[in-house]
Design a protein around this nucleic acid. Structure first.
Lengths: 239, 239
DNA sequence: CAGCGGTAGTTTGTATACAAATCTGTATCT
DNA sequence: AGATACAGATTTGTATACAAACTACCGCTG
């Protein structure tokens, strides 16, 4: 059969590789596809009711973005879900920090009107963030979502096409670790919120170097806190 | 025919997508595939004597890395070679600068013995660089190669797997612009060499912040110089 | 019982056939 | 003459068939 198998609902007919990619990424990020798992093209193709061709595209993208790695085999690639380690977390957070620091730098260079608008927007998100953290039993998904939005706004407003593309590729990988972060470090969320305020002030004041440094510091601190937790809990998928 | 068409020489049988990728990238970087050109899967497949399958993999990678972009069409992707613009150059150099700055920061954190070894290595490369620049008619390829090696060493020594992967993806794109740089700005090469020395000294001294700042400055200056040249010469592939 | 070779099964790599979508050029109608 | 609709050609998206390579298991031999 060469007809479209997954044409059940409306939007299904376009960008099937993208859909497969997004669903697989979701499975990996949420941990339902455990670190170390093998990914077999035919299995995935069957599971999503498509052929191997779009699956191959999705896997290639996931691999290039670092979600899956090649298990050591002679020539053929044997893709497996990448492990979670403290060291990797520190490195990844450092990279994301550098990229977002560049965005913050640019944000502080914007004309004053736009800067102020961005600052107001960020303040509101951050206030919600702080409030959500102080409720008795915080909703982890909501916390993650608010933190995500805070960081994403700077890049969206002040980043060029390349920075947005790259950030869009790298940042989601941090989500695997950030989910641990909000779970185990709920108590330190208010620290993050305070660091965010420093960033906002620097952007509002047009202090490019201050904004850049504050973002770097924010990610550096997060990496340290998270690295310690992961090494306590033990790496996942490392054997 | 389902036999291997390109099995002429020894290493040809593995990683055909990689070979196609590398050859196409070479064509783009050297400008023999002009910005704005359309890339047609079947043409490329014929030209390299492979089927569309490995070609598709290569194109997907090139697209994700930013060498080719989708021309605005409704659903189907119409890949074209990405244009060269001054704005893009500035953004790209800023990103590469951030990544290499992170590597330099880490390099300055290394144990003293390794730091010194790296510094010595860099000094030698940089001296060759300076010397090559001062000859009456400098060899552009050699200049580019030496500059490349200087920057690459830091990342190789002090970067983790992720940073190396990302740098390996992003850096080669700058080559399209760097080739313009050494062509039009041969006179300012000695400035670059001096900036390199500042970086080396900071790494040797273990000055993490100094090393980071020096690398950022080096790329920022290069971006400015190059941006001006490109805007003089005119963007390529923008219409 | 340990080591070794071979064979069957699994999985990826490649090629190709077919379908859907877009683009181009022409002919016709107003 | 200009605009539009239709037909053919191009080109990408998808599915599938086949071949090579790696894995694992089993029986054999020393």
């Amino acid at each position: 059969m060469t007809t479209r198998p997954a044409a059940g609902k409306g939007g299904s007919r376009t960008d099937r590789p993208k859909q497969v990619y997004e669903q697989l990424r979701e499975l990996i990020v949420t941990g339902r596809l455990a670190p170390g798992s093998r990914l077999v093209e035919t299995d995935i193709a069957t599971r999503f009711a498509v052929s191997r061709t779009p699956v191959r595209g999705a896997l290639q993208r996931l691999q290039q973005e670092g979600y899956i790695i090649d298990s050591p085999s002679m020539r053929q690639s044997r893709p497996t879900v990448a492990p979670l380690t403290g060291e990797d977390a520190r490195e990844l957070f450092g990279i994301v920090g550098q990229l977002e620091a560049l965005a913050a730098h640019n944000a502080a260079e914007l004309p004053a009107a736009k800067r102020q608008a961005l600052a107001r927007e960020l303040t509101q998100v951050n206030n919600d963030f702080r409030k959500a953290a102080q409720t008795p039993r915080p909703d982890h998904n909501r916390l993650w979502d608010l933190d995500e939005r805070f960081h994403e706004r700077c890049v969206a407003v002040a980043g060029g096409p390349r920075l947005q593309l790259l950030h869009g590729s790298v940042k989601p990988q941090a989500e695997r670790y950030e989910r641990l972060y909000v779970s185990y470090l709920a108590g330190e969320i208010t620290t993050s919120a305070s660091e965010h305020e420093i960033i906002i002030d620097a952007i509002a004041a047009g202090d490019t170097h201050g904004a850049k440094a504050a973002v770097e510091q924010n990610w550096h601190n997060a990496a340290e806190r998270l690295g310690r937790v992961i090494e306590q809990v033990g790496d996942r998928g490392r054997w």
